[in-house]
Design a protein around this nucleic acid. Structure first.
Length: 262
DNA sequence: ATGGTAGCACGGCTA
């Protein structure tokens, strides 16, 4: 069972990539962030025509998340708390008995900005809400664009980002609090240092491999125990013909289908 | 070198 998380930076602009990805990679579950489309503008037919059920939590212009699944979708939840203030940043669904919480966390702009304070409050509310999800389903993952690089190995230059959003001590506190809930960074054991998931469009960051690992899968113990592989699918960060790539690459994990057989 | 590029939506914001 393969689950992919991918910040597509506009599903409208990235539709050719997403359709090609479904055809060539055929994941069982695809969690997308930054649709930048309101719900009724999302081309759900590109998923349905390929045998996926799809749940969408869209928003005009910014944010927006969806889950597409070949294994059905139960108990879909769009949004979790008033902290979202109308921003569509979280969608959850149960897929094959696994609870997936697909999130696009705020980016934070600069450490002095209101947006950074909002990012921290968003995480605080997420931390208060998640225990209920974890209690309701022992096989749960929080995945998506968390906009946090936790360690030096996850960022191309930690000195340059010291005290900046994506690598700020206050964000690292929130990350550690997520682990204190029992969540595990399930990709880390499978990824070499420098396995980035995001490269800024500016400054030739992709060409120079100046990236960050900010897309993650944080799983409960039962979820982590079933993980058999994780990889960043870098070729989908490259432009294809006339089509521009997203600034994020897909992150794919493979789970055993049965927790007992491994 | 406080720039650079992309997307949305058509000026400026967000990332």
């Amino acid at each position: 069972m393969r689950i992919v998380t991918w910040n597509v930076n506009s599903l409208k602009a990235r539709q050719p990539f997403v359709e090609a990805y479904l055809d060539e990679q055929s994941p069982d579950v695809l969690c997308l962030q930054e649709l930048k489309l309101q719900t009724d503008k999302v081309p759900t037919e590109i998923f349905e025509a390929r045998g996926y059920d799809v749940a969408v939590h869209g928003q005009k212009q910014w944010n927006g998340v969806l889950i597409a699944s070949k294994l059905g979708l139960q108990d879909v939840l769009c949004g979790f708390n008033d902290i979202e203030q109308g921003q569509s940043r979280l969608i959850a669904a149960t897929v094959g008995g696994i609870r997936l919480v697909n999130v696009y966390c705020p980016q934070g702009q600069s450490a002095q900005s209101d947006k950074f304070a909002y990012k921290l409050r968003f995480y605080d509310e997420l931390l208060r809400w998640l225990p209920g999800e974890l209690q309701a389903n022992s096989t749960t993952a929080l995945l998506g664009d968390l906009n946090i690089a936790r360690e030096a190995r996850d960022i191309f230059d930690e000195r340059r980002f010291a005290g900046q959003p994506s690598y700020h001590p206050k964000e690292h506190e929130r990350w550690d609090a997520l682990l204190d809930l029992g969540l595990v960074d399930v990709c880390k054991p499978w990824l070499a240092p420098g396995s980035y998931t995001f490269w800024d469009y500016r400054g030739g960051s992709w060409q120079r491999d100046l990236g960050m690992r900010i897309d993650h899968v944080l799983g409960s113990a039962n979820f982590a125990a079933r993980c058999r592989d994780a990889r960043v699918v870098r070729q989908w960060r490259k432009d294809r013909d006339a089509d521009k790539a997203s600034d994020h690459a897909p992150l794919e994990i493979t789970l055993s289908t049965n927790e007992l057989k491994g």
